[in-house]
Design a protein around this nucleic acid. Structure first.
Lengths: 215, 215, 215, 215
DNA sequence: CATGAATGAGTTTTCATTCAT
DNA sequence: CATGAATGAAAACTCATTCAT
């Protein structure tokens, strides 16, 4: 009488999280196809069969992880920024800090989410296309309102600036999660491998790159 | 006395390319773990055993594909731009066109390359860390020289601007290869799904976002 | 002081039947190995655990279904024919009609029963070997009495005729339950696939094949 | 370039037979769903993977076994009887002997074939429906010709007699393969369990049951 | 060298059975 | 007693890799 997902939903939240965490960790570190059900179950300390009571198959488990990704991003990123009260540069800084924060708190989920951009993940990423419109709208509004408040230089189109800012966000996010993008960051900042590259430094660097847009 | 060439290198270049193309197509569309040796051999019209004569294993084959990625990028992207003769905005435009061009010519290789950023590809991406320094340097130089020519506004740091421009390049590249990033682009440009989004429109949009930096 | 009834026997007869019906349907349509406990429980509207309170395991459940098969056959087939009052040909006709009847009333049980003949069911069919003697005896008696009444031609051995008649019964039964045997029937009657083959036609055909034995 | 079945067809006939034999034995003794691929491979002395090179899946393997069943029956049963030269009773006797013969030579295949009549095997038996027409035709012709030669009593319809004879054949076949039907046979012959029931005895019994039809 | 059949450990998934609540 | 979540061995099937020809 109950759907399969309900079996999972009936679990204590703590256990749900443990399972999703285990899956997210696996998917983040080995990718979808590289991760095995067995390993995930071991990490989550549940039996092989239990997982298939909770989820119809591996795909559904992955989807559940993606749902939690979105949940996390909404809860920690978007909901915190419903009101833009201070200057846009400050807002951007706050936003970057927030990104850094959730990347530290939920690296696996964010990684899984970030990897959706790969072409062979199209099958999974489709369900997220709606999110872009929201995200795009959010940044556009931020810029638009700032322009109304006279904070933004006249010469630039709000949408184009929004896109540019979002690109900075995205690649900052990537740099928090992948060595590859971290190295790219270092390279532009001309920081040697031995020297530590702190989040603050990265944020300052990004803000620096953007300040020409604001009065 | 030549260096001891391995069996793959002894093949006629044409056949080498055919094999690498087949592999790149598979890896691009299905990812590393999702691609099977059998399928690649069939696409390349060689026998299963032959592949293992040419490459030690799947990993080595993937590495060879990555090497060709780099080769392509050097040949088509970097070597074409050793001299910066015209205005920086024009140079950027040319560069974006070039990116669009190689994405159309070698979508699979570029896709494979683009996906290296995923954390579970770290094992493979390490060998490319050197490239960033070059790439970073190249863009930095471009900006630096433009600044010397007085094309760039004073307020912005060359490295930060270089990073920002490179971010635009990267996400433009991604948008050429993945639906996911294409949709993100559309979302910011507020273009409906039904309307075609041409490369020219994207390039114009990016240039628009950057022009505030240049006099 | 009653005998120690097991839990199943303590259930209201109605519920017992519901469970056995569910099991019989599953076993008939998917075979013993193809049927799942879960599905049976769902059909019977009982919990998974309950079934294991009633039966030691799947095998015992199957045995219980077989017992009900036998019960049904005794009740509907054998008990109805304790007295042979009319002519043997008429008795045979009545018998065939009875077979058709219970096949329509209890197709699942009859199917399960019919499939016991398969060698991989030997494990289960052993407990029925006794039944043959009864059944054989019954038919033998029928023929024997008819012979005494002078209805049967002299040249034929009662036992051999009994066997032959029983074979007709059995394959008629099979034809009521399985498409395969139905098709065989059609083939001999040279009836096209499109034309309906009624039970009456089959019975008439069988009687026709037997009438040479009777005066 | 080659279809999957061809991989199997390329094997030396001996090995093909060994694999099909192993499969037939398993399917005969445990049924389709009760038989495991692993066990079959072990019996055939091939690896698990090899089997999947030869056959797309378990179903295809089963089909191949069925094909061999048919092959055997055609080769040993039908082809031997293209001409009916002697008296029909003698022909029937020969035919029964032949059945006994192939049952002894290929018990597994015959068993698999015999079990196709079970309703849950409908999925597989469909492809054999054509065979009935042939088989029916064959027996009908045999009876028909005998009638023309004046061997058959007038009162009986050829088709009905054909059906009756075929029923005897089928249940004789079953009795060679399954204990269950063997016991049924015994019961009608009133032979004790301890006494051996030879094939000759069974054949004689059947012939006895049929002789009333022939002059 | 090239071939492609063979291997077998590994994958995802199922399911009879158990057991805490 | 009843429940249904949990178990884990076993199923069908895959695939990177090897090796006889």
């Amino acid at each position: 009488m109950t759907t399969l997902l309900n079996t999972f939903e009936k679990l204590p939240r703590e256990k749900q999280i443990k399972i999703l965490d285990a899956a997210a960790e696996a998917f983040a570190s080995k990718g979808y196809y590289g991760s095995g059900i067995k390993e995930i179950c071991e990490r989550a300390n549940i039996s092989n069969g239990a997982l298939y009571k909770y989820f119809l198959n591996k795909e559904e488990l992955f989807m559940a992880v993606l749902d939690r990704c979105q949940q996390i991003m909404v809860e920690y990123l978007y909901e915190k920024h419903t009101k833009i009260e201070s200057s846009i540069l400050h807002t951007i800084e706050e936003y970057l800090k927030e990104i850094a924060d959730i990347c530290e708190k939920f690296p696996s989920y964010l990684t899984v989410y970030a990897n959706l951009g790969a072409p062979h993940m199209e099958k999974f990423s489709e369900r997220f296309s709606e999110r872009f419109k929201e995200s795009g709208k959010y940044i556009y509004d931020m810029v638009s309102e700032a322009k109304n408040r006279g904070e933004v230089i006249e010469e630039v189109d709000e949408r184009a600036l929004g896109f540019l800012i979002d690109n900075q966000f995205i690649l900052f996010l990537y740099s928090m999660l992948s060595d590859y993008h971290e190295k790219r960051f270092r390279s532009f900042m001309t920081i040697e491998d031995e020297i530590e590259l702190t989040t603050e430094m990265k944020i300052a660097f990004i803000l620096d790159s953007l300040k020409a847009f604001f009065k």
